[in-house]
Design a protein around this nucleic acid. Structure first.
Lengths: 348, 348
DNA sequence: TTAAAGTTTGACACCGGTGTCTACAAGCAT
DNA sequence: ATGCTTGTAGACACCGGTGTCAAACTTTAA
């Protein structure tokens, strides 16, 4: 026993204080903290009692230094949608709230040429246990490779499985979009337009696939000019809406690949003096606040984003958590179709 | 000189490697890193050269342990508005991007009885250099006191100066709201209704004060039933709108204390078959995505939230930063009135 | 009964920095 | 030249944990 009591009586107790009071070595206390094996029931109990008595909490900074890793998980995102990021964050915090893990959020800039380097530097410096990656940057394989080569755990969140089940959490965009489109079809629509998401985005491709599936199923033919290109932003949706509505035989319903663009489509319709949904039905995707606030409120698709946060955290650092809500092998979570007021029976 | 080279050649260089290569002691390298005084130009230069050569970056975990503080600033928020949080975050990151500081984001639950304890535990464990507090929890003096007694620096963000200039960053809500209301008045409105923010919120009070100022100035009398109570959420705005429009002599314009409630007011108007802005002018506050996406797009007030992030960070940890954009004594930043399409000349 | 194997625990170095105190050199007044 | 102050840099302990390795004790097998 070479342990001395900490000098400053008022300060937070350290591992040394616990060790001294329990009459064991630091290392033994460390073993108790980390739930290591090979501990006799007697010592374990004694040490735990002292820990509680002193209200001892291990110092994360010291642990990080000795362990070579920060007891934290990092969230990498490129602000697809503020509400999404925050809700996901809530999910992650929910999952880790009983552990002594921390969450660090890292916004990155997808358009910066130094993005990968910046992230590499961040991972080098902060050494989180692992990273959670939100779309759209979750789709980048080079980022996943970076994590792999740097030995940092990662979980990618996406519209579809982006990686093997251990490294991804997915929604089923294609499935719900098909469901949404079937709703349009069963309401009577035959001429249905599409506003795509940006090129190169997996989510955009998945949603279009869902759209196609529903159209095929119903034997509906989609003319080329019914498929318009957007970039997930409001203005692109408005432009797409204007183009679609200016066609000789315009669609009676439009599926926009996200809510912002759907809002743009609604604006385009209103500009022409059309009434939504009487003259045009619109469906969006995301269930953003906008979808709720728009008039008419928008029928849309809601990602189970908070649950995805929980699941992603559990996948990433399940071994550090003592309670789990999801089983190991789940990786896809179902989205929900939120039916609101933007769909009606077509006039003709 | 008691320094030995690090054994593992491939690993990141440590302070020991730098010291050995430069032929100085660890402590001297430490002095260089921290820009301490009392260093001869010769050694400083030599050490700096080696640092660059080796690509040495100090290990934040080790620094945190020795320094007794994490080189990070924490952002405490209660999700007033997702976009606001994220934009503020951007500002903070902008300010610290050239330093080796990190940002940790901490959502808290204002309604949880253990909020203060949770935050205290967080501060104890993570030991950030300081905390940035976003409204509405920034308004809580007990939180500020907690920081003060725990010796953690803090800066509070609010609608008005919540603390002495060194500890707060403020917008000028009252001033812009008055300006917005003057715009309504000069457009011809005489019957102007108000949807208040929730009781006990400084921002709500400030905005009402601005409203009052403009009304007084114009000698307009505001009947009691023109002042309705909201809680910053959509539904409360809709309810308030319904109540106002059901009055015998309804207002021709309504100022809602935030955009969500303004959206609710717009819904209430549309429900009655009114056309906005022809039959009712509406002004909101926040410049949220909703304000932009609504039809008609909403005239509203934009907080300089990103700049407030920069300013708040500079106030909090200016001594760790080598570049500053704002002068020490600025603490109020001007908001902007964003004129869009929701105001028109009243019919009568 | 004794050797071999397994279990539990401690001493000690170490992670990579910073604080304190001291040694030494240079600059200044006496 | 002597003594004193000031500036510069090093030795060493320390922050609060974890890894390694060996000692002490227990159990099992011969």
């Amino acid at each position: 026993m070479t342990i001395t009591n900490s000098k400053r009586g008022s300060s937070k107790p350290t591992i040394n204080d616990v060790a001294a009071l329990a009459g064991v070595s630091k290392k033994t206390v460390s073993r108790v903290i980390n739930g290591s094996d090979s501990l006799s029931g007697a010592t374990l109990e004694r040490v735990q009692k002292v820990i509680v008595e002193l209200g001892y909490v291990p110092n994360p900074q010291a642990r990080a230094l000795a362990f070579g890793r920060n007891f934290a998980v990092a969230l990498l995102h490129d602000n697809p949608n503020a509400q999404t990021v925050l809700n996901f964050e809530r999910g992650v915090l929910d999952a880790i709230k009983d552990s002594d893990l921390a969450l660090m959020v890292r916004p990155v800039d997808r358009h910066s040429p130094s993005m990968l380097e910046d992230i590499a530097k961040f991972l080098q410096q902060q050494r989180p246990l692992g990273v959670l990656i939100l779309p759209p940057i979750s789709e980048r394989d080079d980022l996943a490779n970076l994590c792999r080569t740097m030995g940092v755990r990662y979980v990618r969140v996406g519209s579809t499985a982006l990686d093997d089940p251990a490294h991804c959490v997915a929604s089923d965009d294609g499935v719900v979009v098909a469901q949404a489109c079937r709703l349009l079809i069963s309401t009577g629509h035959r001429r249905i337009g599409l506003v795509r998401g940006p090129h190169g985005f997996r989510s955009a491709a998945e949603r279009e696939l869902g759209f196609d599936a529903a159209m095929d199923e119903a034997g509906l033919d989609v003319p080329d000019d019914y498929r318009t290109q957007g970039d997930y932003r409001f203005e692109s949706g408005r432009a797409a809406g204007r183009a679609l509505l200016a066609l000789d035989s315009p669609p009676t319903a439009i599926f926009a690949s996200n809510d912002e663009m759907a809002a743009g489509v609604v604006h385009a319709a209103l500009e022409r003096g059309l009434v939504v949904p009487r003259d045009l039905s619109v469906v969006g995707f995301d269930d953003s606040p906008t979808a709720h606030h728009l008039w008419p409120s928008l029928t849309t698709v809601r990602w189970p984003i908070k649950d995805m946060g929980v699941l992603a955290a559990e996948k990433l650092i399940g071994d550090f958590l003592d309670t789990r809500r999801f089983s190991q092998d789940v990786h896809e979570l179902p989205s929900a179709l939120i039916e609101r007021a933007s769909i009606a029976v077509p006039k003709t």
